[in-house]
Simulated assay, not measured.
Amino acid sequence: MNKIFRKQQLTPYEADYAQWCAEQGALLREGRLSDLDRENVAEEIESLGRSDKREIASRLGALVLHLLKWEFQSEQRKTGWLLTIREQRLRIRGLLDESPSLKKYPAQVLDREFKIARLKALDETGLRDRDFPVHCPYGIKEILDDDYFPGSPWSSDNLMRE
Results as ranks from 00 to 15, higher is better:
142 E>Y: 08
126 G>D: 04
99 S>V: 08
158 N>R: 12
121 A>E: 04
80 G>V: 01
101 S>K: 12
124 E>N: 10
74 S>N: 10
99 S>R: 13
72 F>P: 00
121 A>F: 07
63 L>G: 11
127 L>K: 11
23 E>D: 07
63 L>A: 03
35 D>H: 10
37 D>V: 09
162 E>Q: 10
84 T>A: 07
3 K>V: 07
125 T>L: 03
139 G>I: 03
89 R>N: 11
92 I>Y: 02
28 L>C: 04
135 H>A: 13
158 N>G: 01
104 K>A: 13
70 W>L: 03
149 F>C: 06
36 L>R: 03
88 Q>E: 15
152 S>Y: 07
124 E>G: 03
104 K>L: 12
30 E>A: 15
25 G>V: 14
19 Q>H: 14
38 R>I: 08
7 K>S: 08
19 Q>K: 15
91 R>G: 00
117 A>R: 02
64 V>Q: 03
145 D>P: 02
35 D>A: 04
123 D>Q: 12
46 E>A: 14
131 D>Q: 05
126 G>Y: 06
12 P>H: 12
96 L>F: 00
30 E>N: 08
31 G>P: 02
123 D>S: 14
144 L>K: 13
147 D>S: 13
106 P>H: 07
21 C>I: 15
117 A>M: 04
109 V>L: 08
40 N>W: 01
112 R>V: 08
38 R>P: 00
79 T>I: 12
144 L>F: 00
10 L>R: 12
38 R>H: 14
35 D>C: 08
151 G>A: 10
156 S>V: 15
43 E>T: 10
32 R>K: 11
158 N>E: 15
138 Y>C: 01
119 L>F: 06
6 R>I: 10
25 G>D: 08
20 W>L: 03
47 S>H: 12
141 K>T: 14
110 L>K: 09
10 L>V: 06
139 G>Q: 14
112 R>N: 13
82 L>W: 11
46 E>N: 11
107 A>H: 09
88 Q>H: 09
86 R>E: 13
127 L>Y: 04
146 D>F: 07
143 I>R: 00
58 S>W: 02
65 L>P: 01
14 E>M: 04
78 K>S: 06
15 A>T: 04
18 A>V: 13
133 P>G: 10
67 L>A: 06
